[in-house]
Amino acid sequence: MKVVILCGGQGTRIRDVADNIPKPMIPVGPAPILWHVMKSYAAHGFTEFVLCLGYKSHTIKEFFLNYQAFTSDFTLTLGREKAIDYHGDHDESGWKITLAETGLDSLTGTRVKRIAKYLGDDQDFLLTYADGVADIDINALVDFHRGHGKLVTVTGVRPPGRFGELGVEADGSVREFNEKPQATGGCISGGYFVCNRKMLDYIGDDNVMLEQDPMRKVVADGQLMVYRHDGFWQCMDTYRDYTLLNDLWNADRAPWRCW
C-alpha cells in the first residue's frame, strides 16, 4: 500500500521559522518534519511513498537525491573519474519514493488526483500531510478501515489547546494549571487517512480542496468513517508548534518516535 504525502503547500503561517525552504523541510531535531512522518509509516511496514510536490519542490528533490551523502560518511576521490565510497548504510535503505510534481498552485484534492497513476494496482492507499506527527498505530488504522468497508477513513484527534487552562474550585481557588492542555471535547481531522481509490472519483477536474466539496460528497454518500486517536498528535503550523516539537525531540521525549 502506497503512502501519499501532501508536500506542496507554501506554509505561509510559519514563514517566521524559515521562508527559504518548503514547510515539509523545516527541521525537527536532525531532519525535516517530512522525514519524521515517513519514518513513522516505515516503522509500521509502509515504505512506498508518493510525495505530492509543489512549492520549492527542488529542495525536497535535492534532499532525497543526496540522501546517502547527507546520512553517511564517505570518501571522495577527485579527478576525471570521480569516485565516492560510502561507509556504512542507513536505516532507510529500501524505501521507494516517487517525487511527483503536482503543480505550484494546486489545491490538495487536485494534488491527490494527479498522482493516481502512481498508485499501481493497489485498491487502497494511505494519505496524510507533511506537517503533522502522531503516535498512531498505522496498522490498527488500516485494519479499522478494512473492517468497515467504506471508501475513506480519517483519523480524528483531539485538538491541542492553544491557551493555558485553569482548573478552578467553586470558591475560586485554582487546583491545577495546564500550559497547553488537550481539548476535552470534540475532535478534528488529524490527517492520516486511508482511502479506497474509488474516492478519486469524487475529485473533479477543477482545482479543488480535498477537505471541501470532495469530502462533503463522500460524507453525503455515507462513505466516511472516523478512527479515533486519543494519543499524541501535533501539527506544525506556527513558531510555537515548531518550538514544541523540537523541545520534545531534543529532550528525548518525542511521543511519535517509534523507530
Score class of each variant (00 low, 15 high):
Thr155Pro: 05
Ser40Phe: 06
Asn139Tyr: 13
Arg13His: 12
Arg13Lys: 14
Trp35Phe: 07
Cys187Tyr: 15
Met199Asn: 01
Ala183Lys: 12
Lys96Phe: 12
Leu99Asn: 04
Tyr41Gly: 03
Arg162Tyr: 14
Ala170Asp: 14
Val142His: 08
Gly231Gln: 11
Asp105Trp: 09
Arg253Tyr: 08
Arg13Gly: 10
Ala183Thr: 15
Gly88Lys: 06
Ala251Asp: 15
Gly204Met: 03
Leu126Ile: 08
Val4Ser: 03
Ser40Cys: 05
Leu104Tyr: 12
Leu34Pro: 00
Gly186Cys: 11
Cys258His: 12
Arg80Pro: 01
Thr59Asp: 14
Thr77Lys: 06
Glu62Gln: 13
Tyr227Glu: 00
His229Arg: 07
Asp73Thr: 08
Leu99Ala: 11
Arg216Phe: 12
Asn207Gln: 10
Glu62Lys: 11
Gly9Val: 01
Leu245Thr: 03
Thr98Leu: 10
Glu81Leu: 02
Glu169Met: 12
Gln234Trp: 06
Lys217Ile: 08
Gly231His: 10
Gly45Cys: 13
Ala100Asp: 06
Gly186Asn: 12
Pro181Thr: 15
Arg175Val: 12
Gln10Asn: 10
Gln234Lys: 06
Tyr118Ser: 06
Lys39Leu: 13
Trp233Lys: 03
Thr110Ile: 08
Gly109Leu: 03
Leu126Arg: 03
Asp135Glu: 12
Ala170Trp: 10
Lys39Ile: 10
Cys235Gly: 14
Tyr67Phe: 14
Tyr129His: 09
Lys39His: 12
Val37Asp: 01
Leu141Asn: 04
Leu248Phe: 08
Asn139Thr: 15
Lys61His: 11
Leu245Phe: 09
Arg253Leu: 12
Phe163Lys: 15
Gln10Asp: 11
Phe63Ala: 08
Gln123Cys: 00
Gly45Thr: 13
Tyr242Cys: 05
His90Gly: 12
Leu34Asp: 01
Phe144Thr: 02
Tyr118Asp: 01
Ala251Trp: 11
Val168Asp: 08
Tyr41Val: 04
Arg240Leu: 13
Val28Ala: 01
Asp135Asn: 13
Val154Asp: 02
Gln234His: 14
Ile97Asn: 07
Tyr242Thr: 00
Gly149Phe: 14
Ile14Gly: 05
Lys61Ile: 10
Gly109Thr: 00
Ala130Asp: 02
Tyr239Ile: 07
Ser189Leu: 11
